[in-house]
């Protein structure tokens, strides 16, 4: 299926937004003004955006600790996210969640997750809701190569198959779980694991937006048609450490620069679109300017925003207690 011009513009805008958001966070984190743990998605944009372009507000995703990209791809408010990461009262979660727990259920974003492998069971539940209430929705669980080894993920594959749920498992394999290579930590591979559950699965180059988008579309269509779960094994690269502050001494010193040079998903996207004559260079430039302004404004307003008040400590624990 051919992507429309609007789809392409949207995809580029989202990928670019994620990239600039994450690069800027990298700089802002270094100032010491962002509390806690931050895990950046830069380099992996084609996966989140390629998958989520097939979804609507009726569909749910569950994310990982590396969740900013999924949030933006699913339509979360970028400024609200920035405020949240700065721990502000008007952040997307009132400053109570932070980078690892950004969620927006209105947008179908069930939350980044501080627990590796925490998302797949939850997404089976979102899929069950869609199936039971007949909403027509599907549900996507993003996990990393690390999360793919968790029992929760394996159990969820089984349950999704047994219950024939409209789920897509997206294993984003960036080659490292923290400081450990997936070549060592993952026995076999995700596609063959899925085959063990009779779940259709495919490996895809996660640097290639078009490839991801295409296999994700097939999986989403399968789910919407009531034909059950699928798995995508997306091979991609992260440009930064596991968390901000990770010196990445476990990586080849020039590994990231080579990746940026040869495999950058934004470059590959622009090249492909330019070659096909689908968009004008000026359109990219306009988006770049918009995104730069968006992120500048988000950081400026986040820095100026109020912090939560003392009484916020005690609210939002229960609906009623």
């Amino acid at each position: 299926m051919q992507l429309s011009r609007e789809d392409l513009l949207k995809a580029y805008r989202q990928m670019k937004t994620i990239r600039v958001f994450e690069e800027r966070l990298h700089d802002e984190f270094a100032t010491g003004d962002i509390p806690g743990f931050v895990h950046l998605y830069a380099g992996e944009e084609a996966s989140g955006v390629g998958v989520c372009l097939n979804l609507n507000d009726n569909d749910y995703i569950a994310s990982t600790h590396r969740g900013h990209g999924h949030c933006i791809a699913k339509g979360c408010d970028v400024s609200g996210m920035m405020h949240e990461i700065f721990g502000r009262a008007d952040g997307l979660c009132g400053g109570k969640g932070g980078s690892m727990h950004i969620a927006d259920l209105e947008r179908g974003m069930m939350g980044a997750n501080g627990i590796v492998g925490g998302g797949p069971p939850l997404i089976c539940g979102a899929a069950l809701t869609a199936k039971t209430l007949g909403t027509g929705g599907v549900a996507v669980a993003f996990v990393g190569d690390g999360g793919s080894n968790q029992g929760t993920t394996m159990e969820s594959l089984n349950l999704a198959k047994v219950w024939n749920l409209p789920v897509i498992f997206v294993v984003e394999d960036n080659g490292y779980a923290e400081a450990t290579s997936s070549s060592w930590a993952v026995a076999g591979d995700a596609v063959r694991r899925a085959a063990g559950y009779d779940i259709p699965a495919q490996q895809v180059d996660g640097h290639d937006f078009f490839a991801v988008n295409e296999v994700a579309r097939e999986a989403v269509e399968r789910a919407r048609a009531g034909d059950g779960p699928s798995l995508l094994h997306v091979k991609l690269s992260r440009y930064y450490g596991h968390f901000e502050g990770d010196a990445m001494t476990y990586r080849d010193p020039d590994e990231v620069s080579k990746l940026r040079q040869d495999k950058d998903c934004l470059d590959l996207f622009q090249k492909r679109v330019n070659e096909a004559g689908l968009l004008e260079p000026a359109q990219f430039e306009e988006i770049d300017r918009d995104v730069a302004t968006l992120i500048d404004d988000a950081v400026a307003s986040a820095r100026a925003a109020p912090v939560p008040s003392a009484q916020d400590l005690l609210t939002d624990v229960y609906v009623s207690y």
């Binding site: 939850l122 089976c124 539940g125 069950l128 159990e155 969820s156 089984n158």
Partner: peptide, 22 residues
């Protein structure tokens, strides 16, 4: 809904279903 013996998956699914409308 009968489940397989898979407490992590179905208790988590129940949590996810609760957060999304069941």
């Amino acid at each position: 809904l009968d489940t397989p013996i898979t407490e992590s998956a179905f208790i988590g699914a129940a949590a996810g279903a609760a957060a999304t409308g069941l």
